[in-house]
């Protein structure tokens, strides 16, 4: 059952990315291009996605476990550190350069061609490289 729900969510996520146009890198770069020909589509996508999740969190707050028994994830420690800010900034740079974030990068594997697959390989390499960097940044200054 857990696997069925996982696959359902993953599939719906992929469909949503396709319908919303977020697999088209020009729309993503257009959203980030505030000083050029700005494309506000992504605001509708993010806004649309936040609405069901807002109610899901409200509903989840009343219960301790999810339907299939796993505890509802606790609110993360609100501590902000260099990993969060620097990491997000670096991610944003890559997002702006190519117009792909991790979800669409995976979703476009079948139609993104060799360049899309190359992006995915580079992204996975970056994820491996992040492990030692992360522990170093977490160490006290």
């Amino acid at each position: 059952m857990r696997l069925l729900i996982s696959a359902f969510s993953g599939g719906l996520f992929g469909l949503g990315l396709m319908v919303s146009g977020m697999t088209d890198t020009t729309k993503v770069q257009g959203w980030l291009d505030i000083f050029g020909n700005w494309d506000p589509t992504l605001a509708f996508v993010l806004g649309g996605a936040i609405i069901p999740m807002f109610f899901a969190w409200r509903f989840a707050a009343k219960r301790e476990t999810a339907v299939l028994g796993t505890p509802i994830p606790a609110m993360p420690d609100p501590k902000l550190g260099r990993n969060l800010t620097l990491g997000s900034f670096l991610f944003g740079m890559g997002w702006g350069l190519a117009g792909l974030c991790p979800g669409p990068a995976m979703a476009s594997l079948s139609y993104g061609g060799w360049n899309g697959a190359l992006f995915l390989v580079a992204m996975i390499a970056g994820m491996v490289a992040a492990v030692p960097v992360k522990s170093r940044l977490e160490a006290p200054v």
Binding site: N115, G126, V128
Partner: peptide
């Protein structure tokens, strides 16, 4: 593509 992929990979994992 390679630079962008590396940045997205490392950045998202640092930021969780």
């Amino acid at each position: 593509i390679i630079a962008a992929g590396l940045l997205v990979g490392i950045g998202t994992r640092l930021a969780n």
